[in-house]
Design a protein around this nucleic acid. Sequence first.
DNA 1: CGGTACGTTGAGTCATATCAACCATAGTGG
DNA 2: CCACTATGGTTGATATGACTCAACGTACCG
Lengths: 234, 234
Amino acid sequence: MKRYRSPVLCKTCIEEASDIFKSIFRPDLNIYDYLEWCKSYKRGEAIYHESNKPTGVYCVTKGVVKLSKVGVEGKEQIIRLAKVGDMIGYRSLLSNEPICTTAKALEETHLCFIPKDNFIYLLNNDNRFCFDMLQMACAQLRDSNAFMTDIAQKNVKERVAEILLYLTDEFGLDKEQFLNISLTREDLANMVGTATESVIRILGELKDEKILLTKGRKMAVLDEKGLRKVAGIY
Amino acid sequence: MKRYRSPVLCKTCIEEASDIFKSIFRPDLNIYDYLEWCKSYKRGEAIYHESNKPTGVYCVTKGVVKLSKVGVEGKEQIIRLAKVGDMIGYRSLLSNEPICTTAKALEETHLCFIPKDNFIYLLNNDNRFCFDMLQMACAQLRDSNAFMTDIAQKNVKERVAEILLYLTDEFGLDKEQFLNISLTREDLANMVGTATESVIRILGELKDEKILLTKGRKMAVLDEKGLRKVAGIY
DNA sequence: CGGTACGTTGAGTCATATCAACCATAGTGG
DNA sequence: CCACTATGGTTGATATGACTCAACGTACCG
């Protein structure tokens, strides 16, 4: 849990991810003035917890963050995965309420922190920044609504297939054609809203159908078209 | 399908609902300059359809609008209900994509229309307006995420109970203690993501448990505490 | 007065959760 | 280095919530 207070390091962080942050962190904005620190998180490490008060927002410059809510009887529901170029923690801050999700690093992750006051200042004084944030929030709203419809109407197999497509899209494949993200079966289950055992069985079916290949936690999509068909997306 | 092109009528519309639009339609903004028209919609009338291109945003000054998506095999999923003071159509407009929901009036509804260019102009030139929109989008994102978790984890009875609480909260009760909104059983089913028959059975159970009272389409919550318990909210 | 949309009920089926047992792997401390 | 423990993965058996289908009742509307 190293803390970089040096603005130079923050600058490096952002610059490494600059093409992704293109709309929000523009060259003329001088975002470095507003960052308080950048920090490295280990796999599994918590970033913030449900019911804490938001103190600012975090920008992901490396790694992947899992955002989840605790539902019935402590069961976790994964709301979204945030990757390089994403901002987290802004939603509850802007709704003026306690944080109602939990954020955890899924792998080694670097975050830059913008304290609340700076963030609000930026929003109130840089119209372009505010507008970009609004567009981002709208895009997430779209995803959330679409996903809600899927959970409500599709069966588990369709949802698992859809999540695999989403992961392919979002995180891409490594040189061996494996998905560039490592999730436990339980994480997968908590994304699609089902039981771990169900996910395992579905993955088994997809393997039998030669659509998927797994090697421990690594997964490769062999037949994207087939997967699309299973997911009910044409 | 009457069209009022008169700005005076728009003004009346807005002023009647002014306390609700307080943040977005402030006195100093002179929103009337940006409205193109206000229009009255009959119960059941469509406002816009999936896959149309967004041409602007609509402000509800009277009535209730049902926003839904079409899911698997044509089954409707209700995303949210918009009432007086709400804005609809802004999400797809800001994500730069075809409309992906359908909007229908649930009762006699008045809408004021802000054309796309005016809306974007406002966002880009009135920082306060943009910030308020951002806050609104964030609040909806919170609701959407919370609802996603519920659909994924709660059973049908819990979800029905929760929707009834939500409706009480959102639309209030009339003088006879009946919910101030009229939904078909199918609409209820499409909100909680279940079958119409299931909703009917659950409502029957709640009546047996003296928690609910129904009279045709009218519903009265007799025991809010009991309902809360059923919904799993404490 | 017939039609259309909505509401209700019962019976049968199936998808999925739950429970329980067991295996695999990796990290830890003695 | 090995036993120990924790965590995650897998499989089978069983239970059941909720969907589907079908039939029928009800009410409003032109």
